[in-house]
Design a protein around this nucleic acid. Sequence first.
DNA 1: TCATGTATGTTATAGCATAACAGTGCAAGC
DNA 2: GCTTGCACTGTTATGCTATAACATACATGA
Lengths: 167, 167
Amino acid sequence: MTEPDLAFSTHDHAHCSHDLLARAEAVAEAQGARFTPVRRRVLEILLEAHRAMGAYEVLDRLAAEGYGKQPPVAYRALEFLVEQGLAHRVRRLNAFAACTHPGEDHAPAFLICRACGAVAEAPALAPRAALEAAAAPLGFVIERCTIEALGLCPTCSAAATEAAPCT
Amino acid sequence: MTEPDLAFSTHDHAHCSHDLLARAEAVAEAQGARFTPVRRRVLEILLEAHRAMGAYEVLDRLAAEGYGKQPPVAYRALEFLVEQGLAHRVRRLNAFAACTHPGEDHAPAFLICRACGAVAEAPALAPRAALEAAAAPLGFVIERCTIEALGLCPTCSAAATEAAPCT
DNA sequence: TCATGTATGTTATAGCATAACAGTGCAAGC
DNA sequence: GCTTGCACTGTTATGCTATAACATACATGA
């Protein structure tokens, strides 16, 4: 993750979706995982939405397209994608988002805009290292970590300043 | 937060509870907040448990003691405590824990043992600074953040090594 | 072909959280 | 004193999130 994340910028979304989907297939196949229709469709849904979605929201779309109507159908596909590093769980939102950097830094930090709900991935190597440095003296061995920030994205931040320039 | 957290060490728990409760009252009063019986009792419950508790678990205890039996009773008291920095929400566990360092670093990181469920607070200033450094180039303004690590506490880590010394 | 394992699908239920409204009690101002 | 306002507690009701347990389908390889 060497470039600024795209989620807070305009970009050719159709292209990025297609590209990410192709990379996802490659990643899954490389790991011997079966990229079945439901799983693929769930990733597509997340990519199309280009935002964090609740499991039930994903499920509604699946159901509308003839897939299973029950929660486990969505949860299992989402769990698979998360395990493969193709999607992430955003705990603060109880939601899931397609990974925008598959194959790279697989434990990113999330920046969540409280105004518009946009979620961007940010590089988390440095915060994670700092956290490990803080945990080591306590004898704690870190296996996974969740780093999420709530705040304002550039757009909403600008809008807020505009609306109340004197505060 | 200048000393190692106590949660992974043995200590005089009755004393630490009493001490923390007294400090909590001071903190609440200093902020003009009303430290009512329910709120106080919820904090006591969290302190006595000395671990993360679900809202319903807290509620059960409240109900057993003659307080309200409905979820909002617990959620409101917990929300109050979190706002005052007297307790924290551990998102990974959908649970709440008494703050062990009231008045100090109010956005700590949490170290969650996946084996025994213990939760400790760790200093988060450094990870937070690193996260802000990562967010700044994206134009994102951080307001609050969640930093949680899952892993093994010293005790469980040692136990795991003992049980399978060759892996 | 048949056994095995993986994936999908269903039913049912558990667990987490909040909206909306009612009653209570305290405190400030008349 | 009274009443007006406000914060707190409590209730009913509901919605959202998540998983356990079991049934079915389907591919792969012995």
